[in-house]
């Protein structure tokens, strides 16, 4: 097990280099001219300014040259400077990453909890109203686009009924606690402000649900299918013959057997959540990587775009590793060496 994890960790830098290369090359083949983001329209006709800008940002070098310089800088943690914010990209991204992670983790908890519960109920009460309701819920979750759902729920719960807060991570009048982890729910606790913690949790609820719904749908369908299959297996009969109650049969015996494929899907849904976070963050004014990426893309902010891509890729690599490890822990029949 330890050897397996080590081997995966050793492979990691090479995969990251692959991501870097791909992100870099993809950006350079886009039609957009990064100069338009740096130099104002009026100055575009001034060859001296253009030449100076090119030299300043290294755009006068050839692609291979730029690539080597970029990778070299990356080794010392330098991801270049954002065209828009004029701050180091690494700093921007590190500042925004926790907000996204908090949202994604919350969405994952919401999605997994709802998804597993619904899947279990739908399988146990299959072909009843509960099953059909769960199917409908899943269908909605995976077919309604996040941006529409976000706006609609925001309108209903926040504007019309006023029972949930509007966009943002905290109440507009509140002062954010000093940044420690960047997770608002954790930092407020570090600051010892329980009311602010509840406020942060409250603000997290709707975006997490919006983002997690689709995942809940996928997971519920998968859990249902697996549960139906597992519930027909013979060891379920054994459990009943032992005198186990239905709750124990379903949760302890059946659900544990469906956990293996479920864990895989939860892990891989991470990629979807990271992508979905882009739109969710924009709607909920969430100061995370997603909204940063949108701004960067709009402004042809190449260093920022590459930076976000790389960090997203690394996060994804780690969750994949985590998924595989969890898979082994949950499934005693797999032994890694």
């Amino acid at each position: 097990m330890t050897r397996y994890i080590l081997r995966r960790l050793i492979a990691m830098p090479f995969l990251v280099l692959g991501i870097v290369t791909l992100a870099f090359l993809l950006t350079s083949v886009t039609k957009g001219d990064p100069l338009t983001a740096i130099v104002s329209d009026r100055q575009m006709n001034n060859p001296e300014v253009v030449a100076a800008a090119k030299a300043r940002w290294g755009l006068d070098r050839s692609l291979p040259e730029r690539y080597v310089i970029y990778v070299g800088n990356l080794l010392s943690g330098d991801m270049g400077t954002s065209f828009i914010t004029r701050r180091p990209v690494a700093q921007d991204v590190l500042y925004r990453l926790p907000a996204t992670m908090e949202l994604v983790v919350a969405a994952m908890i919401v999605g997994a909890t709802i998804g597993i519960s619904l899947g279990v109920l739908a399988a146990y009460f299959r072909n009843t109203a509960i099953d059909h309701g769960a199917r409908l819920f899943a269908l909605f979750g995976s077919s309604i686009p996040v941006f529409w759902l976000g706006l609609a729920l925001l309108y209903v719960f926040s504007v019309q009924w006023g029972i949930l807060p509007g966009p943002g991570r905290l109440d507009a009048r509140a002062t954010a606690p000093p940044m420690v982890t960047g997770f608002m729910t954790i930092d407020t606790l570090f600051a010892g402000d329980f009311r602010l913690f509840l406020d942060a949790l409250w603000h997290l609820l709707l975006p997490a649900f919006v983002l997690g719904w689709a995942v809940a749908g996928t997971i519920s369908r998968l859990v249902r299918a697996n549960m139906v299959e597992v519930l027909s297996r013979e060891f379920i009969l054994t459990a009943r013959a032992k005198g186990a109650g239905e709750f124990r049969v379903v949760i302890r015996h059946a659900l544990r057997n469906t956990l293996v494929p479920t864990l895989t899907v939860i892990g891989y849904s991470f990629a979807y959540l990271l992508t979905g976070a882009v739109l969710t963050e924009t709607i909920f004014s969430w100061p995370g990587m997603g909204s940063y990426a949108v701004e960067a893309a709009r402004g042809l902010d190449f260093p920022a775009i590459i930076g976000v891509t790389i960090v997203g890729g690394i996060v994804f690599l780690f969750t994949n590793l985590l998924t595989d490890v969890a898979y082994v822990v949950a499934n005693p029949r797999v032994r890694l060496g």
Partner: peptide, 19 residues
Amino acid sequence: RGSRIAMIFQDPLSSLNPV
């Protein structure tokens, strides 16, 4: 069941919980 009346089944592999 399982206390005064017990049962065993045909295929012991599928009758035991694999996890």
